[in-house]
Design a protein around this nucleic acid. Sequence first.
DNA 1: TTGTACGCGTTATCAT
DNA 2: ATGATAACGCGTACAA
Lengths: 329, 329
Amino acid sequence: MARTTMEDVAKAAGVSRALVSLAYRNASGVSESTRARILSTGNQIGYVHNRIAASLASTKPASIGVFLQDLHNDFFADVYDGIREIAEPKARQLVLSVGSRNHDRDASSLGTLEGAQVGTIIAAGLRMADSDALAHSQRTPLIAIARHIPGVDSVYSDNVFGGQLATEHLLQLGHRRIVFLANPPTDGYLGRREGYETSMLEAGLKPRVIESTYARSDAAEIATELLADTEAPTAIFAHNDQAALGVLDALAARSLVPGQDVSVIGYDNSSVSNTPGTALTSIDLHALELGREATRLALRRFENPDLEPQLVTSTPSLVLRATTGPVST
Amino acid sequence: MARTTMEDVAKAAGVSRALVSLAYRNASGVSESTRARILSTGNQIGYVHNRIAASLASTKPASIGVFLQDLHNDFFADVYDGIREIAEPKARQLVLSVGSRNHDRDASSLGTLEGAQVGTIIAAGLRMADSDALAHSQRTPLIAIARHIPGVDSVYSDNVFGGQLATEHLLQLGHRRIVFLANPPTDGYLGRREGYETSMLEAGLKPRVIESTYARSDAAEIATELLADTEAPTAIFAHNDQAALGVLDALAARSLVPGQDVSVIGYDNSSVSNTPGTALTSIDLHALELGREATRLALRRFENPDLEPQLVTSTPSLVLRATTGPVST
DNA sequence: TTGTACGCGTTATCAT
DNA sequence: ATGATAACGCGTACAA
């Protein structure tokens, strides 16, 4: 039951192996008629183009590696859609790698992609120090999504602005005691917090930042404590939608109505935020567009590896839903 | 800037290429001390194990292909977690392929995996005819998740039972006009519908099946029409959670309260169903466990390719939340 | 532990 | 323009 090889196809079609290779790659140098004949005989005998061998033999890498932090977060699914939309027409193979709970594994995920000999890596949601990412990018060009890493191609969504956007929305609603539920500071996504702090200070208020994780349950726990406080906030700004859901869990447990008793705003505008029951006010990063831009960048880098590090910036926007409302008196 | 190869490592460490190969595979035949020395020198000069070349040279395939229908559906993320949990300790490389909107591309997704020379394909949410799937499995062993394909290894969740579970729950709440919002019948997931019909007939009621798609918006549209009907249902059973969300959208648009005015039940128990605001009653397929079982099966098939087609069946369970309630009088 | 044939396409280089 | 021939890429497997 040996696999059929290109040699088999060549024999069956009465041509050379080289010609079969050209035919399968839509390369020039084969007449349309013979190409068709080759492909059809290939089908007859059940040949499938062996990408592994092709990749090994080829001098230039043809595939793009994609790192996604978490499949449970819809944001990354959107990013992936954007990537695919651009990469597919260019016949670029995508090689996926998914992050795991513990950050330290991010490096090994990138290693997996390197081992697959990808030409470029698009990374969405990388949680490693800037310096580590930079070091990695020396080996295989890296494109960071939603984060700006100096010296590395970045498709950045202006997190500082987004943080301000969220905070000022709450301020306009009359909130004063606004807490920011932050992600672990080691991850590098500090813009949102910075934007929050800026807006608070400008309004003459004291920022109150509490660090949490990406786990919904952790956010719920922290929010529960917060709400029991004598100085309980009237509004909570969570670093992402997942965490915001945790806050909503905590509110539900105390029979508090989001948007009335306490305002909650998330970040990502993931699909969960858009369910009628939840209706979470959030900041939209335009994930699809981020994915597209990153891929365009990747393709450009294939053409010209010596391009200096690029920075594409996109501006997030506020998506108003039901979990934010005027401060209750 | 040529990539460093195994040869380079061998020279630097003063050993043969063969030995370096063994070291990088954790294979026996290298003393612990030299293995450590080899790996460390490999690191020094920036070598990464070239999986492409390894795969080409190796006689037996080492990787498992994973097909996931849709990254936007949390169910598949759970399945993936289960797969990874089992595959990783066995050092099996996972190669991912994601389905696209139009089903006809499913075949090409499997083709991509075949091209990557995977030894087995675990497919979650495949939407192709049984016969096509069977044909594919002749070439590369296939393991179907959440679906039973005769002649193909299947980790099946008893959809018929699940359909009955959902329907009988609604019946017990006093509902009589229960509509089943079905997926496209060409996809092969017919058990849920069958279970629904069985339970309805047993209760002496006439089943009412309306076909929809996987798109939330389509479900919303259909539900809107349904609710305007003179014979409007008091309960809607959707073939999956995504569709159920669409139904909730439609209810929200008419200011109807799910669980009070109209009961809604989904299927999958995906994370969206578990938000406090949404609180969708659903059927849990135990996605994580399905992923685990499929992977165990895959590993067994690596050992023994001539195993006759296996069928593992798992039993879904009802997860009660807020969107179902007694029929309103 | 080592030497080396081998796996399967690709990419020059040549011939028609 | 079309097509053929042969060297090459980078590990793995097996005999020595």
